[in-house]
Design a protein around this nucleic acid. Structure first.
Lengths: 132, 132
DNA sequence: GTACTCTCCGTACATAGGTACGGAGTCAAG
DNA sequence: CTTGACTCCGTACCTATGTACGGAGAGTAC
């Protein structure tokens, strides 16, 4: 019961555009599927799983390049490789959160100043950006 | 005591590349400065302040487009405009932090599973990405 | 068999924010 | 005066991740 499908169906199943599938294919993220009659690509449920894998890994901050690496993994070392990669991503995410939090604080402070000082003259936000 | 400088000095003072200054100029972020003798641009300390303004606003998440808007502001409404823009950025930053935190949790959980289950077989990270 | 949809392909375009190139002119030091 | 560093300009290129286009062929519904 291999449900085979055309590129449009796969795209729909994985909630991406047809062009995205073709793009992943060009980029080597997806195997070129069989092309039986007519030259139309014929995908399997496995391909749909691959595309979902890609999209899910993307939401976790993995680039397509990272993902290409993950997809090639196989064998006993897989786990330690993915573990390290995930850990590296974790650190990136933590750094990014810290950055955003300091941005957040700076913005909130600027906004507060702006709200307090409802006086004439220069805007405190502009001021603080100029002098920062 | 207007310390005038060439593009190279300005770039150095603002810690950006020469090409970046030219790029900002092309993009309308920076006024075209005087070009006295020889056609060499002659910048002032004011220009250096502008470039620092741009870089600082960038670190707070403003795009060059936003910044172009900020730089054109002048007059009594300035403060309310910048206030609203900063508030909008604040919300974007908050959303982004929330996203990253859920990514963070997902990654940490995957990593933990990977560390616990030091058994043979498929890697739990790969597994969870496939099925996620 | 006609109409409509889908797929094929290669290529160009999009975003944001720069970076790089190459040949020519200019400036400052010695 | 020569040498080396700096600047000029327009244009092309870069990363990452897709999107869009357009003409031709294939599949499908009625």
């Amino acid at each position: 019961m291999k449900s085979r499908m055309t590129i449009g169906k796969l795209a729909e199943a994985a909630e991406v555009g047809v062009e995205t599938i073709r793009f992943y294919q060009r980029s080597g993220l997806l195997q070129e599927p069989d092309r039986p009659l007519s030259g139309y690509r014929e995908y399997t449920a496995e391909d749909a799983r691959s595309v979902r894998f890609i999209k899910r890994a993307q939401t976790l901050g993995f680039s397509l390049n990272d993902i290409a690496g993950l997809l090639k993994l196989d064998g006993p070392q897989t786990c330690s490789i993915t573990h390290d990669l995930a850990l590296a991503k974790l650190h990136l995410v933590e750094d990014k959160i810290a950055d955003l939090e300091s941005i957040h604080d700076a913005l909130r402070q600027m906004i507060r100043q702006c709200e307090l000082k409802q006086k004439r003259g220069t805007c405190p936000i502009i001021e603080s950006l100029v002098q920062g």
